[in-house]
Design a protein around this nucleic acid. Structure first.
Length: 653
RNA sequence: GCGCCCGUAGCUCAGUUGGAUAGAGCAACGGAUUUCUAAUCCGUUGGCCGCAGGUUCGAGUCCUGCCGGGCGCGCCA
């Protein structure tokens, strides 16, 4: 039951009676922020008053007269400039709670009246490269969105657009041809391939740092120093504004120089450290221009070279296995994992189509799409003939359109790629993709406690597996503290659920559009808006049934009635009925933090209830049953809510 | 140079798309209780919502300009 939607339906009729073309004003029916203003409030009398040229309070009266809510609300009240405050009738709430309680399958949550088809594109790691902290948000947010949309009755197709056809594979092939340890490969392919990738990657990185980055940085530093120098002796113009702007430019130029200096020092230190390792320097000397060589292997693969294609076929399963291990740990699955390689034979066709439609033109040897509002073109074919991820993404849209006819494709990808998606979507629309909604579900960066992007001390990306392991390890301490858990086995299982849950919840609880600071201590805290707190709340609620030896499943369908004997019960009951609204919000703006906020709110309502209302020691059996049912519905809501976030619960904690 | 995003309590973050007196957790301080799991609950302190204008019944939210920060910008993904 979606109370808000129901109230809006009722108001739509009333508004139409006053002003036929003001349907959008139903959006101004909202949950009240303060209980003293009732449960919900309608704020449409003010704009309507303006439109109709009448005092808002008078409009409010006319709205109420035209409004048919007697079955669900107490008589509406007008307050302030014309707010209409609505308080739901207890009997009505109780009826709806009773329905939710008895509905074992879906606890009263209705399926979408108009189901849509969503393709959700998320996670998208590069095979060969170990997954790192940068993949966590996409994976976790995408998974949660899939679960919520599916639960609401939509058709959801999750597709992991893995990078299985790029340069990293060239590196592995190069590594295999020059550094392979055959015995190790035969025994355990995954670690050996991983070793090869890392080795080649490090050599290429070093080469790039030495031959490209270092000189470039030096040049840039010299330029900027010169610039700072030339700025530092300004002619005082007497114009205050111009002088201020000049001073700002000087400050900025100096800051840039100091930043570049630090950068240069760091780079030099890295190169020195590399040179100090005799084995590494030997390899670097033995493999000059390794970057170009790896690219050549990639090019051969793309060109269909028999040996490289065979190696690709041979190595890919092992690489996927490695990734799957992480997904298993996270409890994340996909309907499809159609990677870049799946589209490689469709790319030429995409470019041809763009050109024949006159959307793309050749420019400087490359095939480009020039778009309004963008200076830089969207390049779909390089001058050397190779295709880019822009090309693959367009081919992917075509394939999805043809194969699944989606109403929307969601790309759960970090915000730095927003320009790419703007261009991609514009180009796709030019090519024609109907009414389909294309959404970049963007998110911010995971930061360390210093406020900078989360990195290891040496400056490399933090491996995802290690990150998860550490969370589980730390969660073990929580499990070990529980007097409820007695077996080592249960402790281990609980630690996994608490640790993984903590990481996921911390991520999902933040507004995805902002960056957030990664902190084990905060995410594993037993207080506040964390998974551990929610899991603990749930375990505590459920412990009541065991202690009271209650067969709660039987009670649900026994016909026992829920009643409100105290304000805390009513407040809890109302919160329980608002679960649907939270889910609807998640689905409408693709933001799971609406659900975490709801769950935390629900847990607070439950705490107050639990404090004020004895359950097992209730005055009489009927009240005890009623409260048990409220407890049960709370636990089921928390469990269902966490499950929709991809988070498991524990029985004891 | 151009474009996008951000600035809310000491810290970490919400703020239902323009609604009433801006919220939560942590930290600090003060209370409660013979526990249904004290991993609790209640209260107090703490805010020029970066600054200045504007729009209107009403602005943390919208528009403009500044200040401060992040990110991106032709052949990487």
């Amino acid at each position: 039951m979606n109370i808000l939607a129901e109230l809006r339906r009722r108001f739509a009729t009333a508004i139409a009676a006053l002003a036929p073309d003001s349907g959008e004003l139903v959006e101004l029916v909202l949950p009240s922020q303060d209980a003293k203003f009732g449960d919900y409030q309608a704020n449409c009398a003010m704009p309507l008053g303006k439109k109709l040229g009448a005092p808002p309070r008078q409009i409010a009266e006319r709205l109420i007269a035209a409004l048919d809510v007697a079955d669900l609300c107490e008589p509406p009240e007008i307050a302030g400039p014309g707010f209409i405050n609505l308080r739901l009738r207890a009997e009505w709430l109780l009826t709806k709670l009773q329905v939710a309680s008895a509905d074992v399958e879906r606890r009263g949550i209705e399926l979408a009246a108009a189901p849509r088809t969503f393709v959700v594109d998320y996670s998208s790691p590069n095979v060969a490269k170990p997954m790192h902290v940068g993949h966590i948000r996409s994976t976790v947010i995408g998974d949660a969105l899939c679960r919520v949309l599916k639960f609401l009755g939509h058709r959801v197709i999750s597709d992991n657009h893995i990078g299985d056809w790029g340069t990293q594979f060239g590196m592995i092939i190069y590594g295999y041809k020059h550094f392979v340890d055959d015995a190790a490969l035969a025994q355990a392919p995954v670690p050996e391939l991983s070793r090869l990738y890392k080795l080649v990657n490090r050599l290429i990185e070093h080469e790039d740092q030495r031959d490209n980055q270092l000189p470039a940085l030096r040049t840039k530093l010299a330029e900027q120093m010169e610039r700072a120098q030339s700025l530092s002796a300004p002619p005082a113009t007497g114009d205050e504004k111009a002088d201020k702007q000049h001073a700002k430019k000087v400050r900025q130029a100096e800051a840039v120089v100091s930043e570049l200096r630090t950068e240069l020092a760091e780079l030099e230190a890295k190169l020195a450290a590399f040179a100090a390792d005799p084995e590494q320097s030997r390899l670097a000397k033995a493999h000059p221009r390794i970057g170009a060589a790896a690219l050549a292997e990639t090019a051969k693969l793309h060109a269909g070279d028999a040996e490289n294609v065979a190696l690709w076929r041979r190595f890919l399963p092992a690489c996927l296995e490695e990734i799957d291990e992480t997904y298993q740990m996270l409890g994340v699955t996909f309907d499809h994992a159609l990677g870049e390689s799946f589209y490689h034979d469709q790319l030429a066709g995409v470019v041809e189509k763009l050109q024949s439609q006159g959307i793309a033109v050749e420019d400087g040897g490359a095939v480009c799409v020039f778009l309004d509002g963008h200076e830089a073109p969207f390049i779909v074919r390089k001058k050397d003939g190779a295709f880019l991820y822009a090309t693959t993404d367009l081919a992917t849209i075509h394939y999805r359109l043809r194969e699944w006819q989606p109403d929307a494709i969601l790309y759960v990808v970090d915000h730095r790629q927003s320009l790419h998606f703007e261009q991609l979507f514009s180009t796709a629309r030019k090519m024609g993709c109907g009414e389909m909604e294309l959404v970049h579900v963007s998110f911010g960066t995971v930061l360390g406690e210093d406020g900078k992007p989360y990195k290891t001390r040496s400056g490399s990306a933090v491996g995802l597996k290690g990150l998860l392991d550490e969370a589980v390890e730390r969660a073990y301490e929580i499990a070990a503290k529980s007097p409820q858990i007695t077996s080592e086995d249960e402790r281990r299982t609980a630690a996994k659920k608490i640790g993984i849950g903590a990481i996921k919840y911390a991520d999902l609880a933040h507004n995805r559009t902002s960056d957030y600071v990664f902190s084990y201590d905060k995410m594993l805290a037993m207080n506040g808006n964390t998974a551990a707190y929610m899991q603990y709340s749930n375990a505590r609620v459920k412990s009541i049934f065991a202690r009271g030896e209650v067969n709660i499943a039987a009670l649900r369908t026994s016909g026992a009635k829920i009643q409100f004997s105290a304000p805390a019960e009513r407040a809890l009951g109302l919160a329980l009925l608002q679960f649907t609204e939270a889910l609807a919000r998640v689905a409408s703006d693709y933001r799971p933090n609406h659900l975490t906020a709801y769950l935390f709110e629900l847990a607070s309502r439950y705490s107050e209830f639990f404090e004020q209302c004895p359950v097992l020691k209730a005055e009489d059996a009927a009240l005890r049953d009623s409260r048990l049912l409220l407890c049960d519905l709370t636990a089921r809501t928390i469990e269902q809510g966490l499950a929709l976030l991809g988070i498991e619960t524990v029985e004891r904690m």
